[in-house]
């Protein structure tokens, strides 16, 4: 599973940057084509739901998705053998 922000829906309120326990959402810097500054994802592979959804067979955490007032946050399936970045936290 891969975390994604739907740029056609996001209104740039930055509420997601306040709620994620891993602080995956960071305030964006540049406006997109609609003039909205969409947050950036900082190493999204750390997200609980991305890592464990298939193992547990159900939604985990999901606080950002419930909080997003514009229904812009969702998860997409990954292609088989998609290259992964490995995040090591100390």
């Amino acid at each position: 599973m891969k975390l994604a922000i739907d740029e056609t829906r996001c209104k740039g309120c930055n509420l997601c940057t306040k709620v994620c326990p891993y602080k995956i959402f960071k305030e964006g810097k540049l406006p997109n084509l609609r003039g909205i500054v969409v947050p950036e994802l900082d190493r999204p592979e750390r997200c609980t739901n991305c890592r464990l959804y298939h193992l547990y067979g159900r939604q985990l955490c999901g606080v950002c998705q419930l909080t997003c007032p514009d229904q812009a946050i969702h998860w997409v399936e990954e292609e088989p053998y998609e290259p992964h970045k490995v995040a090591i936290e100390y």
Binding site: T8, K11, G12, C13, N14, L15, P69, D70, A72
Partner: peptide, 8 residues
């Protein structure tokens, strides 16, 4: 969607 509510 998106709905007409203000940002935030």
């Amino acid at each position: 969607l998106p709905h007409i509510y203000c940002a935030g």
